[in-house]
Simulated scan of single mutants.
Amino acid sequence: PYQLLVSSIAVCSGGTLRKILEKKRLQVEDITIKTDVGRNEAKANRVEKIHLHYLIKGTDLDEHKIERSIEVASRNCPMVQSVKGSIEITETFEIVK
């Protein structure tokens, strides 16, 4: 089912992001990922869009560093790179307290 595809992309992206944030020595306590999926009913309910929204909890987090880290994570996540060109993946984040 498509939920497994979406879950694998979210988990891969989140894990890669966490590693990058740790390397930048950012104090991250928790990352929650919410997903929104766009499917095309006319083409066998094909997954065409996945939006990942990261809820990042931590102390003294720099928005610019997080934004840059998400870009780097996207380029280094094998699951995202596997579907590149066939599924549009967008990402946003917010810092939660």
Results as ranks from 00 to 15, higher is better:
residue 47 V to R: 03
residue 7 S to A: 14
residue 55 L to W: 04
residue 56 I to Y: 05
residue 67 E to Q: 14
residue 22 E to V: 05
residue 36 D to Y: 11
residue 73 A to G: 11
residue 55 L to Y: 12
residue 57 K to R: 14
residue 25 R to D: 09
residue 93 F to N: 07
residue 52 L to K: 07
residue 37 V to K: 05
residue 43 K to D: 12
residue 26 L to N: 08
residue 22 E to Y: 06
residue 4 L to D: 12
residue 93 F to L: 07
residue 86 S to H: 12
residue 80 V to M: 13
residue 33 I to H: 05
residue 88 E to C: 03
residue 74 S to L: 10
residue 50 I to R: 03
residue 87 I to E: 06
residue 86 S to W: 00
residue 51 H to S: 13
residue 94 E to Q: 13
residue 2 Y to L: 08
residue 9 I to Y: 10
residue 13 S to Y: 05
residue 56 I to C: 04
residue 30 D to K: 15
residue 57 K to T: 05
residue 66 I to D: 04
residue 47 V to H: 02
residue 7 S to Q: 13
residue 54 Y to I: 11
residue 85 G to P: 02
residue 40 N to E: 08
residue 47 V to M: 06
residue 3 Q to T: 10
residue 30 D to S: 09
residue 90 T to K: 09
residue 56 I to S: 04
residue 49 K to E: 15
residue 7 S to H: 10
residue 90 T to H: 05
residue 96 V to L: 02
residue 91 E to Q: 15
residue 87 I to Y: 04
residue 82 S to H: 04
residue 79 M to E: 14
residue 93 F to R: 06
residue 54 Y to H: 15
residue 34 K to Q: 10
residue 69 S to M: 02
residue 43 K to A: 12
residue 78 P to Y: 09
residue 39 R to A: 06
residue 16 T to H: 06
residue 70 I to R: 02
residue 6 V to I: 15
residue 56 I to P: 08
residue 52 L to M: 10
residue 70 I to G: 05
residue 47 V to Q: 01
residue 28 V to Q: 06
residue 84 K to I: 07
residue 93 F to K: 07
residue 4 L to H: 11
residue 31 I to R: 09
residue 23 K to D: 13
residue 39 R to P: 00
residue 14 G to R: 02
residue 19 K to T: 12
residue 58 G to F: 00
residue 21 L to P: 05
residue 93 F to Q: 07
residue 92 T to D: 11
residue 73 A to S: 14
residue 85 G to M: 08
residue 5 L to Y: 04
residue 60 D to Y: 03
residue 1 P to A: 13
residue 52 L to H: 08
residue 76 N to K: 10
residue 78 P to H: 07
residue 7 S to Y: 04
residue 70 I to M: 12
residue 65 K to H: 06
residue 30 D to A: 13
residue 94 E to N: 06
residue 11 V to P: 00
residue 19 K to W: 08
residue 44 A to W: 03
residue 27 Q to V: 03
residue 23 K to I: 04
residue 63 E to R: 10
residue 6 V to R: 04
residue 9 I to E: 07
residue 34 K to E: 14
residue 1 P to F: 00
residue 46 R to I: 11
residue 43 K to S: 11
residue 85 G to V: 09
residue 30 D to F: 04
residue 89 I to P: 12
residue 44 A to R: 12
residue 11 V to D: 03
residue 50 I to F: 08
residue 52 L to I: 02
residue 25 R to Y: 01
residue 39 R to C: 08
residue 90 T to V: 09
residue 21 L to G: 10
residue 43 K to H: 06
residue 72 V to A: 13
residue 6 V to G: 01
residue 58 G to M: 01
residue 19 K to R: 10
residue 62 D to W: 09
residue 13 S to E: 15
residue 28 V to G: 02
residue 56 I to Q: 01
residue 90 T to L: 09
residue 57 K to V: 07
residue 97 K to Y: 00
residue 5 L to S: 05
residue 55 L to K: 15
residue 6 V to P: 05
residue 36 D to S: 15
residue 92 T to S: 15
